[in-house]
Design a protein around this nucleic acid. Structure first.
Lengths: 349, 349
DNA sequence: TTGAAAGCGCTAACAG
DNA sequence: CTGTTAGCGCTTTCAA
């Protein structure tokens, strides 16, 4: 890390930015008129308007949003709380939320939690201090402190979570777990394991997917075994690999694994490759999310697709709808999961 | 998409949130005292303080940041302008920026551009209206309109870009292009192509990496050929594949390709797999960025690493330093690129 | 140790 | 069609 200074003149002490008053003076009108021109409201004579625009231009005037929000008692900012962006699913959803929000004139204020409940709670607290117009959770731990904060908060939308605290946009998680497992059952697998590495917080999500997994097994006449359910959230990487290694070394090792997310499936594939087992010949793997990389030929992961763009769109729309009509009832928008069959699954041999 | 309403009572009309004044009244003190307690300033008697805290608690009071910023004439918000999050490199850097900023008491206000200059300009404009304390660009198009906006703006830090408009945190792009190409040369390759799909905006970055590529070729006594430089930014996917297919169908086809980013390399690998060529036996591929998936066994992409966490940290630190001392000279923090050799490169056969 | 009052930049009555 | 004025919630002199 080297450092190359350059000889730019240091920025002069930051002078005050121009205000409506400055513009008004320069244009020879009152504050109100300037305000009206900016907001395209009231009726201002064309010539006056032109002068105002000119003044704005020459001064480089930019409205101060903080002052406006203070007066208006509302903001056009959406608070987004997301786990982290190392799971591309979160990043993709957040990107779509931002695009969607920007299209509707809203900005996104971000708080990532890095899978820490403390960070989650303090992030939410902070977003609330900014008086965000609405809050969108891209995944939620269910933390009680956060729930309490939300009580007096703005409209809240949960993605991939359901709670009476707000509206939800989620796929049918249980059904997702079911179709993934059913796919494996139909291929002829009997010993099917479940693997999750989602952080300790994401309990609800884990539970729904597992219950779908169990339902599918039972329907096929297979008794679910707790032995085959590995929840490795919060466990460090090396230890995780050892546990998976253990699972795959048993004489009655599973012939298929349903991973609770693509990122988990990818991690698993790494372990499996290192052990020297072949996917799908020795082991079938199904993921969940259908992140972009899952479709790469090298990966070709069979997975349950969540339409991230659609979910983001619905979440933003729901947030704004609740904003415009606070009386709107809460509800859940349930998206249908879709199985994407690729080459990581095959009949057991 | 089905919709399940539930019977929650609709939120009552949003009553005004409590203010310092409400707290003051309840605690039987003045606004000033409340303010002092909150900001842990001045000297307030312990008993008074306790009463104030109690009032805050029962009222569920939360300071209004907009009002505070208006008074203080500053915010603790960092504006982040990023291309999009479909390139995991951007997502990773942004995630690190957010973590780093949060640790220092700053929030991140986001504007993604989706590779559109219009979105970039309007996003910056909007962030400036929010009076962000500093701006961090995760990649920049170099657009002149934006440059103009920045003239009167807050401290600006560019990641992966250099400009007199602000400070920079970037790896030595030219050297990166050089070491990637040199690696291929040393393996014995002579016909080495360059491929980029970065959006039309990212010219500077493309240019630096290409110039490193050319330098390495010349050093090896190879004359760079424009024929082998493919810049496919802005060209739709199907057409791209056809062009790459064309390149790889020539009788004197290249035996190696240096891709300007991992995401481009991944895309390329997909095309190559579909053509039926083997990597690395028929074609060596080097990427740039070292995003998380590049290390997956299935991908095992040789690449030039950019330390995204470090870059984010330096960018946030630089931003805050400039905030605290506006007289600080601009400068570039140059990070050294590092070649990560994996299994996508081998000698030509 | 506490309180009164002014003002940050903006919008919205309400007059003229 | 334009201007005056009050006030959003907060911090900060300056007095008491």
């Amino acid at each position: 890390v080297s450092k190359a200074g350059n000889n730019e003149r240091p920025a002069a002490t930051r002078e005050r930015l121009p205000t409506v008053l400055d513009v008004a003076r320069l244009a020879g009108v009152s504050k109100t008129t300037v305000s009206d021109v900016i907001r395209e409201q009231g009726s201002v004579a064309a010539t006056t308007r032109a002068r105002v625009f000119e003044a704005i231009e020459t001064l480089g005037y930019r409205p101060n949003i903080a002052a406006r929000s203070l007066k208006l008692q509302r903001t056009e900012v959406l608070g987004v709380v997301a786990g982290d962006f190392f799971d591309p699913f979160n990043a993709e959803v957040t990107a779509h939320i931002e695009r969607e929000a920007a299209g509707k004139g809203y900005r996104v204020l971000l708080a990532t939690t890095g899978d820490s409940r403390i960070a989650e709670a303090s992030g939410v607290q902070s977003l609330l201090e900014y008086r965000v117009a609405a809050l969108i959770f891209v995944g939620f731990s269910g933390d009680a402190r956060v729930a309490e904060l939300l009580g007096t908060g703005p409209p809240t939308i949960f993605i991939s979570y359901e709670s009476p605290l707000g509206s939800s946009v989620t796929i049918d998680e249980k059904k997702g777990g079911d179709i993934a497992t059913t796919h494996l059952v139909e291929l002829g697998h009997r010993r099917i394991a479940y693997l999750s590495t989602t952080f300790a917080g994401q309990k609800q999500l884990d539970r729904s997917r597992i219950s779908g997994y169990r339902r599918a097994l039972r329907r096929a006449g297979i008794t679910p075994s707790d032995d085959l359910v590995l929840r490795l959230g919060g466990i460090p990487g090396a230890e995780r690999e050892a546990i998976v290694h253990g699972l795959l070394s048993r004489k009655d090792r599973p012939t298929a694994i349903f991973a609770s997310s693509d990122i988990t499936a990818l991690e698993l594939m790494g372990y499996v490759d290192r052990i020297g087992l072949d996917i799908p010949d020795d082991l079938s793997v199904v993921g969940f999310d259908n992140i972009a990389v899952a479709g790469l030929p090298r990966i070709s992961l069979t997975t349950v697709a969540q339409a991230s763009a659609q979910m983001a769109k619905l979440a933003v729309e729901a947030a704004i709808a609740r904003l415009q009509d606070p009386g709107l009832p809460l509800g859940t928008q349930l998206i249908q999961p879709e199985l994407i069959v690729r080459r990581s699954t095959a009949p057991p041999r």
